[in-house]
């Protein structure tokens, strides 16, 4: 499965890349919000974004890594 030379892989069509990209982007946005955003609705805590951001980034990167390590090979029809 690791040898993908000369074979067509699903690439952007692989749903894991889509999930990974979206979750990782969300993670980055939350981390940036935690770092730079100063106001939050009354009673809420902006620092909660640190935890959410880290968790999303890790899960997102895990999906990207999974798709990279076990790519879907498209069979030529």
């Amino acid at each position: 499965m690791t040898d993908i030379d000369g074979k067509k892989t699903a690439g952007a069509f692989d749903i894991r890349n889509v999930i990974g990209a979206l979750l990782a982007l969300y993670g980055v946005i939350l981390l940036a919000t935690a770092a730079f955003h100063s106001d939050a609705p009354k009673g809420t805590n902006n620092s909660d974004n640190w935890w959410g951001g880290i968790a999303l980034l890790v899960v997102g990167l895990a999906f990207l890594a999974w798709a990279r390590m076990r790519p879907i090979v498209v069979e030529e029809r």
Binding site: I29, H37, D39, P41, T44, N46, N49, G52
Partner: peptide
């Protein structure tokens, strides 16, 4: 959501 989530997590 109103009482617990800061902007960012709220968007999600």
């Amino acid at each position: 959501m109103r009482d617990l989530l800061p902007n960012g997590l709220l968007g999600i």
